[in-house]
Design a protein around this nucleic acid. Structure first.
Lengths: 259, 259
DNA sequence: TTACTTACGTTCGTTAGCGCACGGAAGCCG
DNA sequence: CGGCTTCCGTGCGCTAACGAACGTAAGTAA
């Protein structure tokens, strides 16, 4: 059993009323997720749901030829395993750890039970699921119309957002926040997620590096000028980011919402 | 108020227990949806949910350049407006009538109330939402890796499936089932949905016609050899079809499901 | 019938991304 | 230190799809 306070590192859990969080904490455990670990195989019965705190997970589908494409990513803002409460209990996608780190997990039965209580957790998870859907449909659009460089910017920015700790959680973070955010990942893995060739990433990343926006070093990407990435990224980044913000902020607001 | 029996033309509604269906029927009305009608604009507050009986609706996103891409389609097997019960009340996508026809609609408040009762309807709608997610992520993959001809086959087959009446509902359908299923749509519109050029569709459709699989005539496509399309289609079609079948058949089955 | 709109057919130059192959260098390990 | 694996850089021919322009025919309306 975990202290409820540590669970606040996940933004979904942080949005729960204290009572519900305490209840959930009884059945949560913290796990370390190493880079590349496959959490869900397509069609497999899921045993746990994961609420990342520092880890990032990539949802993608692998086609018969072996190629693949990411449909969404999951970080501190979300959770993995929506099919557990949506009713399907499995998905056609795979889930792989894209950035090593920590996550909290809860087994299927306890999650389902908590969801079926119909409280704030249910509301929150459903809203998050809608945010996931936005990511998926935006991935479809982006794959169709935007070039590799734009998609790489989108991927970098979304990953960066998931790595950066919340401002209001700053007191919880003991170590100093790193001045230069650095992603630990190879070009080959990025290529797999975007569903493009490794060489395509090499070229696009080279362009960004030549412009001084990032710095590359064998499996590490340092983002030097976040603003520069934001200027080159396609609209898809903003759409996804705004929709996540919209759906996960005014939780409990049962008003008709903005027109 | 409608007779509950007519609502059975929509497969989601048909899967409801009679009592729940009767309850819903009190607040349902039938509407005619003309080709091209936009039911939802992005970000707009939704007023109704739609359960198509013969109409087909396309969910897609339009980017700044004016290009677009479909993320999912909705026909008799589903419903439009999941964001009403998911909590967002709006989506970033547009919804446009792709095939003219009939649908049942219910206003936001009554749908939400029925959903919150937590009965079979809730379970069903959540499972359907997961099926929608499968379509979306598969669209992302398909856009990335499969050629226009394959995508056209996928689109034709999925549309065909939505047009073909259920076998077990055959007694309800008064007119004879058409021997040659014909879609009423222009190449230009198909191109918009797939997010490709009109000329691309002209060429791909020309290939299929040359092979005798379809016949084209100014806004009408007759499918001559469904089997031939199934041979050329990419795996995405099967993935989506199977997942819809899986999620919407064993409703109520609370077993652990297939591993 | 004639005029007109809408939809389909075709061509051509251009380009983003692919597949393949090879070279080189960074980092790890004995 | 030397050897080895992994990762990144580069070049080259190739193809699917793009953008634009123009022609033609089907259907519609006067």
């Amino acid at each position: 059993m975990l202290a409820a306070s540590i669970l606040l590192q996940n933004r979904l859990l942080a949005a729960l009323p204290p009572a519900e969080l305490e209840q959930l904490a009884l059945n949560m455990e913290q796990v370390t997720l190493p880079l590349g670990k496959m959490l869900y195989e397509p069609g497999e019965q899921l045993s746990h749901a994961y609420f990342p705190s520092s880890a990032i997970i990539s949802l993608h589908y692998v086609i018969e030829s072996g190629a693949s494409a990411e449909s969404a990513g999951v970080g501190r803002e979300g959770m993995l395993g929506v099919s557990l409460f949506m009713g399907g209990n499995s998905t056609t996608s795979s889930a792989v750890v894209q950035t090593a780190g920590l996550a909290f997990r809860i087994d299927r039965q306890h999650l389902k039970a908590a969801f079926d209580q119909g409280g704030a957790l249910q509301k929150l998870l459903l809203r998050y699921t809608q945010a996931l859907m936005t990511q998926m449909s935006q991935s479809a659009v982006c794959n169709r119309h935007h070039c590799i460089e734009q998609q790489l910017c989108r991927w970098l920015l979304l990953t960066l957002d998931r790595l950066t700790p919340d401002v209001n959680l700053a007191t919880q973070i003991k170590g100093a926040t790193p001045p230069l955010p650095e992603l630990v990942i190879t070009q080959e893995l990025i290529a797999n997620m975007l569903g493009v060739r490794r060489e395509g990433i090499t070229e696009a990343a080279g362009q960004l590096q030549a412009k001084g926006l990032i710095r590359y070093r064998r499996g590490h990407i340092a983002v030097l000028e976040r603003h520069g990435l934001e200027q080159r990224v396609c609209e898809c980044y903003g759409v996804v980011k705004k929709e996540i913000a919209r759906l996960l902020t005014d939780v409990g607001g049962e008003k008709t919402g903005p027109a």
